[in-house]
Computed example of a mutant assay.
Amino acid sequence: MPSSNATPDASPPLAGAAALSVNALSAPLVERLVDAAARLGVAITHTQGGTVLVDAGVAAAGSIDAGVLIARICMGGLGRVAMRPSLEAAPLWPSMIEVRTSAPVLACLGSQYAGWSLSATKEQTGGKKFFSLGSGPARALSVKEPLFAELGYRDAHDRGVLVLEVDRLPPQVVIDKVLHDCGLAPDRLTLVITPTHSVAGTVQVVARVVEVALHKTHVLGVDLGEVVEGSGSAPLPPPAPDGIQAMGRTNDAILYGGRVHLTVRHDAVAKQLAAELPASNSRDYGRPFADIFTSFNYDFYQIDPALFAPAQVWVSSLESGATYRGGALDAALLQAQWSGQS
């Protein structure tokens, strides 16, 4: 149930962000991805209409650098993403993804969140049915999700970019839908394809560690206007060739290895989030995500929504200057899964 900190009569949290265009801010990053395709290991093709397709892991090899850049694109140019070696004496994992943003609600929920459902039947594709969730700046052009009404934000730009987490290039019928819903000319759209089992796909999913915290904050009913800064880190696992295992590894990286630091306006909110936000509040917590997913017959909607959260959160209050902490990392579970030990 939403908490008492929900403020339904307050202004939408992004009502004052109309001057910021996540598609305009991400455009230089998209240009860099295309221009450096050979170095980044991605492949560029175009539809007959001129829509740019960036293969970052279907037939192309992709790379960690490509994944980092794609994660920044997903955040609408409002986030910093980097890979670094672990500097701890007893590292959780050798490689970590770090994320930070001073516009956490717009970057994470207004852009990065994978909330746009795109599908096509086998009759429409002339072969195999297609399904993918779309994330990134073009979501804010189409505003097909109720979330945008809550945020009070809609982008207006003549270019758009959408990231698809799927293992094949989208059919023309899906491309046409995106163009129509975004109001774009074909040559003004870029679609980036990042399968979860690819190197770039693994990076861009793990880089959602702060976004997962913002989404859980929203689910808890906390006024999103409370959150003014966000940063976080999570371990970068090696990709798994099996799709279910790859999805499991990226989720485990956040659920058991993700650490997020939020800065909020009020002390009561900081205390609440420290207590309620960590993944350990879920009834399904404690097992590898692939096992949980399989046990529910591959149905995401059967999994407790409270599970989708970082392992550990630190929440600082501007009101009191205090920082509260909740949850804990589980290095043993991650290393047992990723190192092949039982």
Rank of each mutant, 00 (worst) to 15 (best):
S95C: 02
V192A: 09
T7W: 07
P8I: 11
G62N: 02
A234H: 01
L214N: 14
A10S: 13
T121Q: 01
W314Y: 13
A332R: 12
Q312Y: 01
L189D: 03
A90C: 07
W116H: 10
A322K: 15
R265M: 07
P171V: 14
Q272P: 00
L220K: 10
D187G: 03
I97P: 01
D187W: 02
L40C: 03
S320M: 00
L277P: 12
A61E: 14
D35V: 09
W93M: 11
A61L: 09
R249H: 10
L106K: 11
F308D: 01
D167V: 11
V260L: 12
G41W: 02
N297F: 05
L277K: 10
D330Q: 13
Y298Q: 05
P137L: 04
A311G: 13
Y298I: 00
M247A: 02
M83P: 03
T202V: 08
S117D: 15
R154T: 10
S231Q: 15
A311H: 08
S317K: 09
V81Y: 12
A90W: 06
A56T: 06
A103C: 02
A60W: 06
A59L: 04
A290I: 04
M83D: 06
A36V: 00
A36W: 01
T194Q: 03
T47V: 06
V99D: 12
A246C: 07
I292V: 15
D65W: 10
A207N: 07
G127R: 13
P186F: 05
P171T: 11
L169A: 11
N281M: 04
A328T: 14
H197Y: 06
P85W: 12
A36G: 00
V42R: 01
A71F: 13
S95M: 11
L141P: 11
K128W: 12
W314I: 03
G327V: 12
C182A: 15
Y324R: 10
P195N: 11
Y298P: 00
V34F: 02
G127N: 12
T121S: 15
G62R: 03
W93A: 13
H180C: 03
A61D: 14
S233V: 10
V163Q: 09
P94T: 05
G41A: 03
A114D: 05
A61I: 05
A322N: 14
A114L: 13
G326H: 07
A290W: 09
A27Q: 15
L329Q: 03
R39C: 01
A82Y: 00
G16A: 13
G321K: 02
A279F: 02
L179N: 04
N251E: 09
